[in-house]
Design a protein around this nucleic acid. Structure first.
Lengths: 208, 208
DNA sequence: GCGCTACTGAAACAGTCGTGTCAGTCGCAA
DNA sequence: TTGCGACTGACACGACTGTTTCAGTAGCGC
């Protein structure tokens, strides 16, 4: 019987929640047990007892952040409804750009790059996991047959890239006007080629 | 006279270069003096003497990485030549996607997000600085009057977002095919709206 | 020779880290 | 009341951290 398979006790989820709030405020990079424990009214001894070791605690925190992110994504994109990629991007961006979500997104970015540099240990696979999480959600927003086509995969990869690139910019510069303008510029681009392809469907392209 | 204003000695640049190679391989997050020093054939004592303290060393390493990045960008985009945003993106992406540049880009990503979480200390302002670096280079690739227009700023912000979003994806999944396809899909998008706007210039749009 | 600057080795400082040990204190079921 | 499982406090261990102290050594202008 592995220790991770045991269901979390009430005290465990309580302390995890407190530790999560602390991590949102202070980051994960130089997280250490004693300051964390004293901040959330606990002790290193108790954290060790409940999470096994520090790695277990960090893993639990990352898992906590990931579920946060996933529930939000599922909600936003109205998962299962093929509303199309562009509306999904618009909704997701509106959520990303909200100021009160910055701590979570900073934490996410930190865990992401950390897992790139240090592929072993508690962070292992976090980056790859979130890429797949987001791509999956975006996929459910695409109508068939686009969803299963290779072109569809390229489209949602691009959509994800725009979202994350703009997010990185936003986190660094706090210039929401410019970042949002870029995202909406992309949405306008997509709209143009859509109407263009419809027009071309009505009338064959001019011969040069 | 501040210590940072002194020109670096020969020994200093030699050790900085060695430490830079070490950081590329091991990351900056849990860099510590003793392992680094022994790996590059030096001692903590000497590093302290040459760089003042650990913060000074890290700052020097970040500055070193930044100049690396900037010289590359200047080279690639043929700085000063208004070749247009799309060709610039294409060239920059070709460089980013090259496998041997991954260590540098991982280091860059690490420093970027770290400076978001911990805005003081050695990392201060690194993220904001690189955003501006890249935006400036992209700006010099834009022809006038696009460059100075607000729309131009939006366009290069979007270009940067696509590049960095795709880069994050690439670093996490190592799926160069998909990431490159996304970037080229965007370039195709831009090409379509260009020809579209040219066609519309010839012939007024249909009335609905 | 002297003095000066640049650099270096060995050892120790005080502090923090994750972790382990030993002893307890609760609440609750039998 | 007893017993048991969940949880906790106090403290110490060894390893590691950045940094400092003291004592040098090599090269070079004079």
């Amino acid at each position: 019987m592995s220790k991770e398979a045991t269901i979390p006790s009430a005290r465990q989820v309580e302390l995890l929640e407190a530790a999560y709030q602390y991590a949102l405020a202070h980051g994960l990079a130089d997280l250490s047990l004693r300051p964390l424990a004293s901040a959330i009214g606990s002790s290193p001894r108790v954290l060790m007892f409940l999470f096994g070791n520090k790695d277990g605690l960090v893993k639990a925190l990352l898992a906590r952040a990931r579920t946060d992110e996933l529930t939000v994504l599922d909600h936003l994109a109205q998962a299962g409804q093929p509303i199309g990629l562009a509306p999904a991007v618009e909704q997701i961006w509106a959520w990303l750009a909200t100021e009160e979500h910055r701590p979570l997104l900073r934490l996410w970015a930190e865990a992401y790059t950390r897992s790139l540099v240090e592929p072993d240990g508690a962070w292992a696979g976090f980056a790859r996991a979130t890429v797949n999480d987001w791509l999956d959600v975006l996929a459910t927003c695409q109508p068939q047959p686009e969803r299963d086509s290779e072109d569809g995969a390229t489209r949602r990869t691009l959509a994800l890239a725009v979202l994350r690139g703009a997010l990185l910019d936003l986190l660094a510069t706090d210039d929401e006007r410019r970042a949002s303008a870029a995202v909406h510029h992309q949405l306008a681009l997509l709209r143009v080629v859509l109407t263009d392809s419809r027009r071309n469907a009505d009338r064959p392209a001019r011969q040069p």
